[in-house]
Design a protein around this nucleic acid. Structure first.
Lengths: 160, 160
DNA sequence: CCTCCAAGTTCCTTTAGGGAACTGACCCTA
DNA sequence: TAGGGTCAGTTCCCTAAAGGAACTTGGAGG
């Protein structure tokens, strides 16, 4: 379906989408994060086509988000694991979970809960400022052109 | 290309993907957030096909993420704006930007910067615990089944 | 030797994205 | 009042990507 390549845009959202924006990719990362790490396990947990699963895994390994490692050499068997780059993507999944819980979970409540090691409590994520530690959301910031801004592209002031 | 519907899965990631997971949707939200709000503006800022843009906008309005409002009645003209539900999605975009800046921006640096109103400094977002306020990432939590968990689906312990 | 298993690969059908042209409602101005 | 311009889509055709099922390969196990 001749999709536009997002990877070349001067926009961190587009470039992130290029890596994990295709259907199934975030769910694959979720599964690997919780320990569903082998091809057939992924295939039947997700119900994804084997063809598409193979394509996605290959891409995610190329992008250094997942690592393919042999866990048995005699019968050559492999499993997938998150790299540091991939582990940081799980932050994104946690924010997706938060939004999905608030706006799509309904009566039934959230499918999963997080217990925070540091305080032991059931919690969700919130966005805070890296500098002062206070909450920081879309309405708490000005967006300014950065070093790599392309004038006029996303207006003088673009998020990206 | 007969895509699997994610909206029915018991998983907040899948349900979030169902709303904004299609190609272009996050970029459309970004543009609306920064004030690129009309059909033709969006079309030429993004270079998206008009057909796909019309489909996406319709979907996002149905999902109550965007609102379509008339800004002129004489020549009937419309623009799009974020609803509260949509504004909270921008949190997700901010986390995408953070990841993209760290892992895909390279030499050139980030295309945009955020200035935090509260402290006035250039900053990025970090994930903190809603309960104790300390940092909280993928390696700082246990994932437990929640009220709406489906046993065995994402194993006993699934993120979702 | 026959069968099983994991991890893919191949093949075919269906459908969604790209791109460009077209439509319709309304303005302007000459 | 005829002609052109703008905005906001819609229609059409073509190609490429997703679904699904069957096939393949390299070994293990009985």
């Amino acid at each position: 379906m001749q999709r536009t390549r997002f990877g070349d845009m001067t926009c961190s959202i587009a470039r992130t989408m290029d890596v994990i924006g295709e259907p199934w990719s975030p769910l694959i990362l979720r599964d690997v994060y919780v320990g569903i790490a082998r091809f057939d396990q992924l295939q039947d947990d997700l119900g994804i086509s084997r063809k598409v699963l193979a394509e996605r895994l290959k891409w995610l390994v190329e992008q250094d988000v997942l690592e393919r490692r042999e866990y048995s050499a005699k019968p050559p068997r492999h499993e997938y694991a998150l790299t540091p780059k991939g582990t940081e993507l799980v932050n994104l999944l946690m924010v997706m979970v938060r939004w999905g819980d608030r706006w799509t979970a309904g009566e039934a409540g959230p499918p999963v809960l997080y217990r925070h090691h540091a305080c032991g409590r059931i919690a969700h994520v919130e966005l805070h400022c890296s500098e002062c530690g206070e909450p920081m959301g879309p309405t708490d910031i000005d967006v300014l052109p950065g070093p790599a801004s392309t004038p006029g592209d996303v207006r003088s002031t673009g998020i990206s």
